[in-house]
Write a protein that binds this DNA or RNA. Sequence first.
DNA 1: CGAGATTCATGTGAAGTATACCTTTAGGCTTAA
DNA 2: AAGCCTAAAGGTATACTTCACATGAATCTCGTA
Length: 401
Amino acid sequence: MDKVDKIFDTFARNRLFVNKMVLQSSYSPETILHRTEQIEKIASILAPVLGGDKVSNLFLYGKTGTGKTLSARYVGEKIESRAREGKQEDLKFLYVNCKSRKVSDTEYRIIAELINLLGDKVPATGLPTEAVYSKFVELVDARKRVVVLVLDEIDQAVKKISDGFLYTLTRLNSDLRNAQISLIGISNSLTFMDDLDPRVRSSLGEEEVVFPPYNALQLKDILSVRAEKAFVKGSLGEGVIAKCAAYAAKEHGDARRALDLLRVAGELVVRAGGEKISDKHIDEANKKIEKDKTLDIIESGTTQSKLVLYSIVQLDVDKSFKSIFTGDVFNIYQENCLRTKNEILTQRRVGDLIGEFDMFGIINARVISKGRQGRTREIKLMLPPSVRNKAREILERDLDL
DNA sequence: CGAGATTCATGTGAAGTATACCTTTAGGCTTAA
DNA sequence: AAGCCTAAAGGTATACTTCACATGAATCTCGTA
C-alpha cells in the first residue's frame, strides 16, 4: 500500500480525538474555572456600559496562560449579548492583539485594525497617523454609544512604540461628542505599569485585576473538563492529567502549556496508531515541545548566530575539549566563516551572540576567571544528544555545509 | 613565606555606523463636479 | 478642487564595530622572618 494512504488510514482510524479544537488555545469554553473572582470583578467594573455610561479604564495583569484574554473576551461577549437582548445596540467591544503579525506593532496599524473592526477600511500605508486617528474618532463618534477597546499584550506595543500612544488613546474621549471610549489593557508583565508616564498610569490603571498563576489542582480541573470533550471516553490513562498539571504548574501555572501538552501527547499517540494516552506520552510531549521550541529558536536565528552555534556544537561533539571557552568558539567560528564564505564578526559581537544563546537556555555560559589565563566564559551545550544532532542537521543544512 | 602588584583573555558598557525597512510628505496625476 | 498615488525625504530598529575600561584569580615580586 502507498505510504501516503497508510498515513491517511491511521488518521481516519483515529479513535482518540473527538474534538481537538477544545485543546487549542483559541478555544473559549462556556465556563471558565477558577477565575470567578476575576470575572466577577471585571463584570462589575464593566456593568455600567449597559446603561450607556462610560466605565473606568481597566488593567489586567498576569503571566501567560493565566486566563486574562479568555476572561476579558468572556465578559465582553456576555455584555454584548446582554446589550443585544435589551435592544441596546450602541455598545461595542473591540479586541486587538497588539503583538499579532497583522497588527505588527506600529501605532498606525493598531488604529487601522480598530477601524477595520468597526467595518471600515483605511489604506495600509500612505496616510498620516493623525488622519487615521481622526477617521477612527469619526467612526466611533458616529452615534451615541460606548466603545470598549481591549488591547491585548499592550506591554509589547508600548515597548515598540512609546507610551505616548496610550496617552493619546486615554485622551481620545475629549474629542468625542456622542460616544465614550473605555480601555482595557492586558499585560504579561507585572512591572509594566511602573515605567509608564504617570499621567497614563493614573488614567489607564483606574481599576486593576490581577490574574495569579493557576496551581496544580486548578490546572487539573481545567484539564479534566477540556479532556472530557476532546477525547474519546476512557482514552486517558491513570495520572495523565495530574502529570500535565504538574508540568504546567512548574512553568508558572501556564494553562496554555498544560493544554498543549495534552494535545501534543494525543497527536503523538494518534501518529503511533495507539488509542490511549499514558503518562509516558506526556513526558514525550514535554520533550517534543521543548525540542520544537529550541529548534525554532535555532532556525529563526541569523546566519551569523547559526555559525556561532554550529561552532559550539562542533566543540561539544569533539570531546577532546574538556570545557569550551569563548576564545575556542571564536577560532572555530572564524574557520567556519571562511569555509562558508561569510564575513567574520568581531569577537565582541560573538561574545554577545553567545550571551543570547545563554538567555535562551540553549547553552549554559558561566563567567570564570582562569587567573593568569584571564577571564572567559565556560560554555556548556544544554541540549540532549538527540536534540543536539537534530540541531546540527538543521545548522548544516542552513549553512550549506 | 606572604602581601601586594601584575597580567592575561575576555567581559561589559557606551557610542558610533551601515543597512533595511517604515512612515511622512510633497508633488504630480486623475477624477468628478 | 479633491482625492489618490508615488517617489523622495526623513525616522527608527537592527546588527554590527570601535574604543575604553573593568575583572578576578593565577602568578610574579619583593620585603621580611
